Structure formats: structure tokens, C-alpha cells
Computed example of a mutant assay.
Amino acid sequence: MVLVGVLWGCTNPLLRKGSEEVTASSSSSSSSSSSSSSSTSPKSSKSEGKYTSIIEALKSFLNIKVWLPYVINQSGSVVFYILLANSNISMAVPILFSFLTSSLLGEPIEKPFQTILGASLILIGVTICVSSQE
């Protein structure tokens, strides 16, 4: 269960950071291309926008900073379902690892006391549930 928490919790901030970088780079490239295509008709610009969004989605998925954390995150889901099949308990602790990873990446935490208190209470609650199952 701790492995699931690590796989889910550590990858969430990495996914967020990778998608922000891809979005920032795509918005800078689309702003330069939109200024050159200002003479197109409304119908063609609508279809171009549709294809552009598909291409941007493919570019973001091909970026290693997006797909690698995504694959690791999904492996956490596989481990979670294996645990569900083999035990009575259906809880994991990704919040604590998400908090730690966000801190290591330097992301600001809006309410640190409440975040630490909430993560601690979740950790205590899961520990009680796991120990009562034995």
C-alpha cells in the first residue's frame, strides 16, 4: 500500500509540472503561428484549431516529462488493483507522498499547517485500519 502511495503521490506533482511546461511551450509556439495565419477564413481556422489541439495533445503525450510520470502513475493503479484482489482493505496514502514531492519540487503550499495536519490524520487513520485488519 505504501508502494501505491509512492507511485500515485510522487507522480501527481511531476505530471502537473510536465503538463505546465508543455502548455507553456505550446502557447508560445501557437501565438507566433497565429499571427502569421490571420488572413484565413473562419471555416478553415475552425478546422485548423481542431487539428492543432489534436497535434498539441500528441506532442504533450510524446514529451518524456508527461508520459513517464503517467506510466509510473498507471503502474500504481495496477498495483492497487492487485492489492484489492488480495486483501480486504482498499486504501492508500498518496497524499503524503504528493506533499513531499511537491515540497521537493519547490511548489508553494498555500496552507502548510492544514496540509500537514490532514496528511498526518490520513496516515493515522490508514494505520489504524490496517492494524485492525490483522
Rank of each mutant, 00 (worst) to 15 (best):
T40V: 14
T40K: 15
S41Y: 00
S41L: 02
S41T: 13
P42G: 04
K43F: 10
S44L: 13
S44I: 15
S45H: 07
K46C: 05
S47E: 11
S47F: 15
S47L: 14
S47M: 12
S47D: 03
E48N: 12
Y51L: 13
T52E: 10
T52W: 01
T52M: 04
I54W: 08
I54C: 03
I55T: 09
I55F: 11
I55W: 09
E56Q: 13
E56S: 11
E56M: 06
A57Q: 06
A57Y: 06
L58S: 09
K59I: 05
S60D: 11
S60C: 10
S60L: 02
F61N: 03
L62A: 12
L62W: 05
N63A: 14
N63R: 07
I64D: 08
K65R: 15
K65V: 03
V66R: 04
W67M: 00
W67E: 01
L68W: 05
L68G: 01
P69M: 04
P69K: 06
P69W: 04
P69N: 04
P69F: 05
Y70F: 14
Y70H: 13
V71G: 01
V71E: 03
V71W: 02
I72R: 00
I72H: 00
N73H: 13
Q74P: 00
Q74M: 13
Q74N: 11
Q74A: 15
S75D: 01
S75V: 09
S75G: 06
S75P: 00
S75H: 04
G76R: 02
S77R: 07
S77H: 10
S77P: 01
V79E: 03
V79H: 02
V79G: 00
F80L: 13
F80Q: 07
Y81K: 03
Y81A: 06
Y81D: 07
Y81E: 06
I82D: 07
L83V: 03
L83W: 07
L83M: 08
L83Y: 12
L83D: 11
L84G: 06
L84A: 08
A85G: 14
A85K: 15
A85H: 11
N86V: 06
S87P: 03
S87T: 13
N88G: 14
N88H: 14
I89M: 08
S90F: 09
S90H: 15
S90D: 15
M91C: 08
M91F: 13
A92E: 14
A92Q: 09
V93K: 10
V93Q: 15
P94D: 08
P94I: 02
P94S: 05
I95E: 15
I95K: 10
I95L: 12
L96A: 09
L96V: 12
L96Q: 01
L96E: 01
F97D: 04
F97T: 05
F97S: 02
S98A: 14
L100V: 15
L100Q: 01
T101W: 00
T101G: 00
S102D: 04
S102Y: 02
S103R: 11
S103F: 12
S103Y: 12
L104P: 00
L104K: 03
L104M: 10
L105H: 02
L105Y: 07
G106K: 06
G106W: 02
E107R: 05
E107A: 08
E107T: 10
E107G: 05
E107V: 10
P108D: 15
I109V: 13
I109L: 12
E110V: 11
E110L: 15
